[in-house]
Simulated scan of single mutants.
Amino acid sequence: MRRGWRWGWIAPPVLLIAFVAGASIGETPIPAHTVLTVLANKLFGAAFAVDRIDAGIVWNYRLSRAVVAACCGAGLALAGVVLQALLRNALADPYLLGISAGASTGAVAVAVAGVGGGMVSLSAGAFIGAAAAFVLVAALARAAGGGAGVQAAGVIVLAGIAGSQLFNALTTFVIAKSANAEQARGIMFWLLGNLSGVRWPDAWLAVPAALLAVAVCIYHIRTLDAFTFGADSAASLGIAVRRCQALLIGVTALVTAIMVSLVGSIGFVGLVIPHAMRFVVGVRHGLLVPASALAGAVFLIASDIISRIVIPGQVLPIGVITALVGAPVFALILVRGRAGR
């Protein structure tokens, strides 16, 4: 536990470095000391002289992107930690289990098809879609009767793939039926992960969602450790299994839905980051939870930086970068894990 608290001291300087890098690096480089000057002026009321254009780029554009990226990375990484523990499935994450696809369908249905008649927000639509996707995947896996162990894990993954394909098809249908050419182009770019349009109002939604995920996971560290050995073992330790499952999965779906409604569907974060951190800190959730949150935040900020500079004059969807980095890393993790056995 003491080692777990150390991450609370490590996180602020690491995040500060990541935020400064995110605000400094871009098509137009801005010196780090300028970024720090802008932060001092905005946060602490200092009156240092700084170019107004640089200040606008740093504060209104790049820093807000970095904050939202960090929140999304931390939230998705913790969603992967929770799902992998509860389902005892190393391949469980919001993207693979169809939760991200369901959230995308719900968000697109509200934004393009006008579902709810203006009474339902984008985040609420995404949450409804995420919850529906998880219920469908769970029901399909239960109906398939996967048994236990490897067979059960395989059934859950197959059910997740089926759910993802279904909700991706529904999203495409809604776009084709209700969106014009310009809307369709923008939505398809957004679905691959896009931070170009995020600003500080989005951060006011992303930050509480990420803090909620961190707080719930830290509060339920013992529960997550218990579920690693199965629901029966958790119940024997006095864990209220159904209540904890409902709470943790509900929070996972909510956080995923909020992040998808802000930046689109981003894959591999919830899958790769928890596995990578297990190699670093081990499997105890007292260390895994803070390490995964911090690594997810830094990883998505770095991916956003790469998406802005890899092609001059063009911004790539961030989901492309996470897939290009995450797929080889996950393949390496699989190979190392097999060699370790």
Rank of each mutant, 00 (worst) to 15 (best):
R6A: 15
G8E: 11
G8R: 02
I10N: 04
V14C: 14
T28F: 13
P29S: 02
P29N: 10
V35D: 08
T37N: 06
L39V: 09
A40Y: 05
A40S: 13
A47W: 04
D51P: 02
D51L: 01
R52M: 01
I57A: 03
W59H: 13
Y61H: 11
R62V: 00
L63G: 09
V68R: 04
V68C: 09
A70W: 00
C71R: 06
C72A: 14
G73M: 01
A74Y: 13
G75C: 01
L76D: 06
A77Y: 07
L78H: 04
V82S: 00
V82N: 01
Q84G: 12
A85D: 11
L87R: 02
D93S: 15
P94G: 11
P94S: 05
Y95P: 08
L96I: 15
G98Q: 07
I99V: 15
T105D: 07
G106K: 10
G106A: 13
A107I: 15
A107D: 12
A111W: 01
G116P: 05
G117V: 14
G118H: 15
M119G: 08
A126E: 09
G129V: 12
F134S: 13
A141P: 10
V155F: 13
V155C: 14
V157C: 09
V157E: 12
L158Q: 07
G160V: 06
G163D: 09
G163K: 08
S164E: 06
L166I: 07
A176S: 11
K177T: 12
S178Q: 07
A179N: 01
A181N: 11
E182H: 12
A184H: 05
A184P: 03
R185M: 07
I187A: 05
M188R: 01
L191K: 01
L192M: 14
L192E: 04
G193F: 07
N194Y: 00
N194G: 04
L195S: 03
L195Q: 04
V198A: 03
V198E: 10
R199L: 09
W200F: 08
W204M: 03
L205C: 07
A206R: 01
L211M: 14
L212P: 03
C217I: 10
I218E: 07
I218P: 00
Y219I: 14
R222K: 13
L224V: 05
L224W: 00
F229R: 03
F229M: 00
G230E: 05
G230Y: 03
G230K: 06
A235V: 04
S236A: 02
L237M: 02
R243F: 13
R243A: 15
R243P: 05
L248S: 11
I249W: 13
V255S: 08
G264Y: 08
G267K: 08
F268D: 00
V269E: 12
G270R: 10
V272A: 14
V280M: 15
G286T: 09
G286D: 06
L288D: 06
P290S: 09
P290L: 05
L294H: 10
A297Y: 13
V298L: 12
L300D: 00
D304E: 06
I305T: 04
R308L: 08
V310R: 05
P312A: 12
P312I: 04
V315I: 12
P317L: 00
P317A: 05
G319D: 06
I321S: 09
T322G: 03
A327R: 00
A327F: 04
V329H: 05
V329E: 10
L334R: 10
R336S: 15
A339T: 07
